[in-house]
Amino acid sequence: MSNDLIVEGTDITLAYRRTRHRVSSLKQTAIDTINRRIAYENFYALNGVSFTVARGETLAVIGRNGAGKSTLLKVLARVLPPTSGRVIVRGSVAPMIELGAGFNPELTGAENIMLYGTLLGRDSKTMQTRIEAIADWAQLTEHLDIPIRAYSSGMVARLAFATATDVTPDLLLIDEVLSVGDEDFQARSKARTAEMINSGCAVVLVTHDLNTVQSMATRALYLDHGTMRATGKPQDVIDAYHADLR
C-alpha cells in the first residue's frame, strides 16, 4: 500500500545561514571581517513540513508570498536538497515551474524541444521521436526549423508548454495553473493540464487562486514562514488561511 504514496515528506527543513546585510562582494566581506561586523542569522525557508501525496491525489499549497510554497516545490523537484528531514519521491516528476528554462534563442524550435525535454530528464532517443507531435500540438510545425529568437513570446510559451506536458509523470508539480498564448491556446492548455491532473498521477499545486484550490485539490496545505499552519480538507485549510489574513 505504501508504494501508492508518490511523495513522502517527513519533517522537511531547509535552513541556511545568511549574512544579515546580504553581502555579496569580496570587498565588502573583507571590510566586514576586519571590522568584525558580519552578523549571521539562520533563515528557515521550510521548517518541519511533513505530508504525503498518494497517486490520484492533488495537494494544493497555499500561503502568502515568501511563505515557502515555491521552495517546497523545488525540494520536490530535487533542485533544493533539504538540510534536514527526508523526502521520498517515487517515479518520474514533471516540474511545471517557469516553463522554458534552458531554451536558447539561437537554437531552432526542434533543437530546443530536444534540449528542454532531455533537461527535464527524458530519454533523448524517445525525445527525437516526439518532436513532431510536440510541434504539432503547439501548432508550430512550420516554424520548427527557425531559431526561436524569431518567435513571439506566445509561440515560445506554447513550445515550452507542449514539451513539458508531453508525458504523463507520476508526480506533477505546478506553480500556478498556466494559461499561455492566445485564447484558443489558453483553453487547450487548461484542458491539457486538467487532463494530466485527472490522469491519476499525484499533483502538488502551488496557487494563490483559492477557487482553483476548491475545484481541483483533494487536500490542501497552508504554509506560513516555512511552517505548516494547517493541512487537511481544502475548505478547512482555506478557512484557517482566511482566519489568519483577517
Partner: peptide
C-alpha cells in the same frame, strides 16, 4: 540559474 533552480540536473 534559470535552469539549475527549476530542473533537477
Amino acid at each position: 540559474a534559470g535552469v539549475l533552480t527549476k530542473v533537477h540536473v
